[in-house]
């Protein structure tokens, strides 16, 4: 099956089976490697992308179910919020290995887009689907605060 996918503002054609997860379509067919594989069962958030601004786990989303505009870590900097989040992540040097961070940044950008001044509880709720095996949680929280112009505690 050929699917038309709008990824980061560009339309791509992907000829894959309907049950192929969006993650593998992006990575192996379209060569968009930012979204990562960590678990394949919606447990870790490494594969998080936006569809029409909503964060989804691309590892469990069949390509046939995707209708909206897809944004990945490669394209998230095009929005003002995404750019701010990337800047905060850089300034505080959140990453250790960095493998989870594309997913963290996608979740954080979605959070700040809908909730520009999240509380700690809001951050916990929005970010607890994203595992960081290196446990950079202290800095993830601080970077979200910074990107939202709040005190970093």
């Amino acid at each position: 099956m050929a699917y038309k996918l709008n990824v980061n503002g560009k339309v791509h054609q992907a000829d894959v089976d309907p049950d192929t997860p969006l993650l593998w379509t992006l990575r192996d067919t379209l060569g968009i490697l930012g979204p990562k594989y960590g678990c394949g069962i919606a447990q870790c958030g490494a594969c998080t992308v936006h569809v029409d601004g909503q964060p989804i786990r691309s590892c469990v989303t069949p390509v046939s179910a995707v209708t909206g505009r897809i944004t990945t870590i490669e394209g998230v900097g095009a929005s003002a919020v995404g750019k701010k989040v990337q800047a905060a992540w850089t300034e505080l040097d959140v990453a250790q290995c960095g493998y989870c961070q594309p997913g963290q940044i996608m979740s954080a950008t979605a959070l700040l887009t809908s909730n520009p001044k999240p509380t700690d509880a809001d951050i916990d709720a929005a970010m607890s689907g994203n595992i960081c095996r290196c446990a950079t949680y202290t800095r993830i929280r601080a970077a979200i605060k910074r990107a939202s112009g709040q005190k970093e505690a």
Partner: peptide
């Protein structure tokens, strides 16, 4: 800041 950080936060292939 880690040298690779700008690449990490923009999802460039590193791994």
């Amino acid at each position: 800041v880690q040298y690779d950080t700008p690449k990490i936060v923009t999802g460039q292939p590193l791994f």
